[in-house]
Design a protein around this nucleic acid. Structure first.
Length: 493
RNA sequence: GCGCUUGUAGCUCAGUGGAUAGAGCGCCGCCGUCCUAAGGCGGGCGUCGUAGGUUCGAUUCCUACCAAGCGCACCA
């Protein structure tokens, strides 16, 4: 359908219906279109509705069968290098639910972009250089300046409290947290692979922070005031200018960020993607400012993921034995399972302030639509397995797809047709939450088809063959959709 | 005080400058010789937070207000 006639009414000074009619007349005269269109209709205020012929969908299905999933992959990412940085939780304790949500989002985004032929590097920024390492040191030494608590601090206390220097103790502990808590959680619990664990300390070791300060000074974006060095971020819409080097000569965390941005720029990325928790949204302006001041001319996309509120019996839960004052993502995954946790987080648009009811976590997991989707996939596999066992009867070269004219078959083919445009749209808008919704919708259409149309019918071998081809196509697309969001596609349930 | 985000069905959430605003869950009823009933079919009278504005048309854009979350360091 198109509303173009409504939009054109004013500039053309004609009535929408008049314009719609003339569009209809023109298009109906087009021989090429006539091959695909069953009819064109003008509706009430001025819509033009197009009806595709069944043969269009049948051809499309045959094409998918012949070319496989690669035909669904848009070219829009060809030759574009993307750096996708996400989670980047401090190495001072377990990852919390907000990290989890951002993690699943970033990972799914990478999967979608890669499917659309972008070249993506997944990166985790490890804040192993700053003040928080010192805070961790104090915490494991349990002295007056301790800030972190929880079971893991006990363990770190046992291991590293004897190290005399606080900073050294903090470094050792941070390394331990990264290797024994964060990385296992990310890789084994969340099923996320990072190409790069980028160390903040390495920026100093490699001179990138100083290099960034030089570039910024050269671009005349810095100034000195009250003994400190500032970046004029207000030139780029920030509320206030930001300090790079404090009056005591210490570089700020923001200086590290500038070094990190310079590293990404020098590595030649066309697109820089960052996903931040909503508690860091105040940084977006200064990061954008820094990137531009450093001379970055590519695309910078900062995604803000709203925090997750954990609720139990209608009240917010904050305490966790494991992590101290937050609930750890690995605990949640242990409680509901990876697929459920992932699907649940990914279903919601990043700017939804979502509530996760822990009290209903188990129950919710039983009712989670992920099972509905996976069940559709398992059903497909079951049908195909049975078909395989009767291969001799249904095997043949000629498959007549024009037999697929049932209302439910056409509905299913139309649903499949949505997938390619969804990829394109999502790789532009980063709206990855559309995929869980699509998966539900496709599963829904399939279940309905399944109920109405028996696939394997020994009385009607020709129809059986055509339907198997349709079912195969659904398997490919549904399987790909699940793979894009990182949820498993089980052959049996 | 300023800024960002959010306010849509009982609950959790999609959605759109346009045609009767959708899904899941919950609730009610029906469907079993047959490829997995973790399924299907039917049942929704919603002030799209409130009030204005722009528009032929606003739930969608703008302004104000109300409510919620999060920010506003020479912290990280």
């Amino acid at each position: 359908t198109t509303n173009v006639a409504l939009v054109l009414a004013r500039p053309l000074g004609q009535s929408p219906l008049q314009i719609a009619e003339s569009i209809k007349t023109d298009l109906e005269a087009d021989d090429e279109l006539r091959a695909y269109l069953a009819k064109i209709e003008v509706a009430k205020p001025g819509y033009v509705n197009f009806y595709l012929q069944d043969s269009y969908y049948q051809k499309s299905l045959a094409q998918l069968q012949a070319q496989g999933v690669s035909m669904l992959r848009p070219k829009i990412g060809q030759g574009v290098k993307v750096n996708n940085e996400f989670i980047s939780g401090n190495p001072t304790g377990p990852l919390h639910l907000g990290n989890g949500r951002g993690g699943f989002f970033g990972d799914a985004l990478t999967r979608v972009l890669r499917f659309a032929n972008f070249t993506v590097t997944n990166e985790y920024y490890v804040n192993d250089a700053g003040e928080q390492v010192l805070k961790l040191g104090h915490s494991i030494k349990k002295n007056a300046e301790a800030v972190y608590g929880g079971e893991y601090i006990e363990e770190l206390h046992q291991k590293f409290a004897q190290i005399a220097d606080v900073k050294e103790a903090g470094r050792a502990a941070a390394q331990d947290v990264l290797q024994n808590i964060i990385q296992p959680t990310v890789e084994h619990k969340m099923h996320i692979h990072f190409d790069n664990w980028f160390s903040e300390q390495s920026l100093y070791d490699d001179g990138l922070v100083d290099a960034a300060l030089e570039v910024l000074a050269k671009n005349a974006k810095t100034f000195e005031e009250e003994g400190a060095l500032w970046l004029r971020t207000t030139d780029y819409g920030d509320d206030k200018d930001r300090v790079l080097v404090k009056s005591d000569g210490q570089k700020t965390y923001f200086a590290s960020d500038c070094g990190y941005l310079l590293s990404k720029i020098r590595r030649g990325f066309d697109v820089l993607v960052l996903t931040l928790g909503a508690d860091h949204h105040g940084y977006t302006k200064r990061l954008e400012a820094a990137a531009r001041a450093l001379g970055f001319t590519g695309t910078l996309r900062i995604n803000i993921v709203q925090l997750v509120r954990l609720v139990k019996d209608g009240k917010e839960v904050r305490m966790s034995k494991r992590a101290g004052n937050v609930v750890a993502i690995d605990e949640l995954i242990d409680a509901v399972g990876h697929d459920v946790a992932r699907f649940f987080f990914l279903m919601y648009s990043p700017n939804t302030h979502m509530n996760f009811d822990l009290g209903l976590a188990q129950e919710r997991s039983q009712k989670n639509p992920v099972f509905y989707v996976q069940y559709a996939y398992a059903r497909i596999c079951s049908i195909l397995a049975k078909a395989e066992s009767q291969k001799s009867k249904i095997e043949s070269q000629e498959i007549d797809l024009t037999l697929l004219t049932h209302e439910k078959e056409l509905a299913l083919m139309r649903e499949l047709e949505r997938f390619p445009e969804l990829i394109e749209e999502a790789s532009r808008s980063y709206a990855v939450h559309k995929f869980p919704h699509y998966a539900i919708s496709l599963a829904d259409t399939f279940h309905s088809f399944y109920d109405a149309c028996r696939v394997i019918d020994e009385e009607n071998i020709e129809l059986t063959k055509a339907r198997i081809m349709l079912v195969l196509a659904v398997k490919v697309v549904l399987g790909e959709t699940l793979s894009l969001i990182g949820v498993s596609a089980p052959e049996k349930m």
